[in-house]
């Protein structure tokens, strides 16, 4: 009995089987490397309701706003090249996956689902209707900045102030940045007291924002946590208004 087993083990068939097994494993490993390599091209579009995320998505992907948009209910994923690059004929550019995540409080927890493969986050804010809804925006920005999956991987964030085409009705980028910093600073102390952030998060401990001793600024956050936060003007309805966002996307997802 034992000899038979030993013989079977030593036989040529077994060797072939082993080789086949090893080859399969190798293929799987390669596949995984390849897949994980292509994973890092996702850019998330987040922000409060009515900030213009869906419009921005269309402008970036198709170079047109089509008929307009209504409140989104589910995230939209769009793969492919940026519209401007397609028009420019730069075929070698690496495709980007854009994910538009609805701003409604009930569904914006979905950021978590995509956080793992995000290479960049564009936080879109409405510059015109900013003041009455600044707390809402700040709250959401807080959730994004403290999302463990994003903070751990130091995913850069772009604060894009949309609707800058509205002229004097729109607040300036600087004003919005300062206001949000102030709100976030306050939220840091109150949110900390409440333990786990938001109802929906559960993927580990929430990340800290900025340095504990000093007032919160995006600059200090970048210094202490390594998460780059930049600002940009945006006018999602114009073709030329999305240039700064495009630059950010290209920086996050190198061609």
């Amino acid at each position: 009995m034992a000899e038979q087993v030993a013989e079977a083990l030593g036989s040529a068939t077994t060797m072939t089987m082993l080789v086949v097994l090893a080859a399969t494993l190798l293929v799987f490993a390669l596949l995984k490397v390849w897949l994980s390599g292509s994973k890092g091209n996702t850019v998330l579009l987040v922000g409060p309701c009515d900030a213009g995320k869906t419009t921005l998505l269309h402008q970036l992907c198709d170079g047109s706003t089509h008929l307009g948009s209504v409140a989104s209910m589910v995230p939209t994923e769009a793969d492919g090249q940026l519209a401007s690059e397609k028009a420019g004929g730069a075929t070698s550019a690496r495709p980007v996956q854009l994910v538009d995540i609805p701003g409604h409080p009930r569904v914006r927890g979905q950021v978590e689902r995509y956080a793992g493969r995000a290479a960049g986050v564009v936080f879109v804010v409405d510059s015109v209707d900013f003041m009455p809804r600044k707390t809402e925006a700040a709250e959401q920005l807080f959730e994004v900045l403290s999302a463990p999956a994003l903070a751990r991987r130091r995913v850069p964030l772009l604060l894009a102030c949309n609707k800058q085409d509205m002229g004097s009705k729109a607040h300036t980028v600087d004003f919005i940045r300062k206001r949000l910093e102030k709100e976030l600073d306050q939220m840091r102390s109150t949110r900390g007291a409440l333990g786990d952030v938001g109802g929906g998060s559960g993927g580990g401990k929430a990340a800290q924002l900025g340095l504990p001793g000093e007032p919160f600024t995006f600059e200090s956050h970048a210094r202490s946590r390594g998460v780059r936060v930049t600002t940009a003007t945006l006018s999602a309805v114009d073709k030329g208004g999305v240039a700064e966002v495009e630059a950010f996307i290209r920086k996050s997802v190198p061609a």
Partner: peptide, 10 residues
């Protein structure tokens, strides 16, 4: 419109 929020026809 789509659930993603794009208006298709109105």
């Amino acid at each position: 419109f789509t659930k993603g929020g794009s208006l298709l026809w109105a």
